[in-house]
Write a protein that binds this DNA or RNA. Structure first.
Lengths: 201, 201
DNA sequence: TCCTCGCTTGACACCGTGTCAATTGACTCG
DNA sequence: CGAGTCAATTGACACGGTGTCAAGCGAGGA
């Protein structure tokens, strides 16, 4: 078995990642991903059984630590608490959604599916070690903001990466169908005064 | 016309709000809302033309300022920067998603639909005045954290309320179909090692 | 008595996800 | 060289939530 084609899988992941990241806010259909990967829609389903599977695999495919590391040095020029918050939120905006919601989701999972929860706890544990290592590297570089102890920074990073993994799940991002977007914009301005449409004609 | 039934509309909104807030993470179908309001699904569509319309109307139906005000006093006991961030994020978790994304969404709108964008800008302006008034009241009460100047607090509140209005839009929350939730949990643990399903049998 | 109007029932189109069956074409191994 | 394997293909279809349409019903007012 020479051509087990992990590279095809990678091509799919790259296509998905590209579409998800560049077309931010755009709905990404399975067929879009397939087309960009130069494959049929069904080929994607052969590799990843479901859309959910593909999305999760895509987030795991990210070289997350590298991506995140570039953002980890918070602005030292921010003066007020609000400004610091603002800078923080700005830098991490894409990773923040429902940080607390993630914890709740994990708890909920552990209630309903012990086996899956265990797998995830393991994964989170691994990730935490990775975070600690990355933070240690940052500290060694002297690029870690002195506002944070290594432990604090590890906490932050870990939380944020957890979110990165879970945001597709918790927010169900990308499940919406495209037509809703337009509908939204078209109806937004008139619906606040809209009267019941009594039997037309 | 004595029974123009604005109260029916309110009943629908209350039903939607209840389901959206209590069943957090649960998908809320139009039929669910209708059932809880004691109406048929079509009656809901008569009052609000689309799901999007209903969601927007629901967020506007909130007595947002009152709701938010209870949360506006940040923890004074938090010591480190991380802890303060943590307390902040915890308190506002439900309002935070994609704070920056909201701004982007507004910008995008102004590109594509000038009229709608103008209406929203107007609305945002109104809301900002409301925020300033609320913050002034908080300051007068002495309940506003001394960490924030009134202007800063107004900024914060306004941003957060903008998000509150837009989260349903930007995140398309609630559009997912329920079966995906289960699929997600069931497939999560096995898909990372999943091999292509070659022609079965 | 008739008409309006809010609401009902029941059916249907749309469309993205996920499934299935049959086929193609390349590659390896006897 | 032929058989078997396997990735990927085409084409069709079921599912289910949103949104639409037509016809009807019943209460209240002129």
């Amino acid at each position: 078995m020479s051509s087990e084609s992990p590279e095809t899988r990678t091509r799919i992941l790259a296509a998905a990642l590209h579409l998800l990241e560049t077309g931010r806010g755009q709905t990404v259909r399975m067929s879009d991903i397939a087309r960009r990967a130069g494959l049929s829609r069904q080929a994607v389903y052969l590799h990843f059984g479901t859309r959910a599977a593909l999305l999760i695999a895509t987030t795991l495919y990210l070289d997350e630590l590298k991506d995140v590391r570039a953002r980890l040095v918070p602005s030292r020029t921010a003066r007020s608490g609000v400004e610091r918050l603002d800078a923080y939120v700005g830098a991490w905006a894409d990773y923040i959604p429902e940080i607390r919601g993630v914890a709740k989701a994990l708890m909920a999972m552990s209630d309903t599916d012990e086996e899956a929860a265990e797998a995830w706890r393991k994964r989170m544990e691994d990730m935490r070690e990775g975070c600690a290592a990355a933070i240690e590297a940052l500290r060694a570089d002297g690029t870690l903001s002195p506002d944070y102890t290594p432990d604090e920074a590890t906490d932050l990073l870990w939380t944020l990466l957890s979110v990165r993994n879970w945001e597709h799940l918790t927010l169900e991002r990308g499940y919406a169908q495209p037509r809703y977007k337009d509908l939204l914009l078209r109806t937004a301005r008139r619906l606040f005064v809209r009267a019941p449409r009594s039997a037309a004609r």
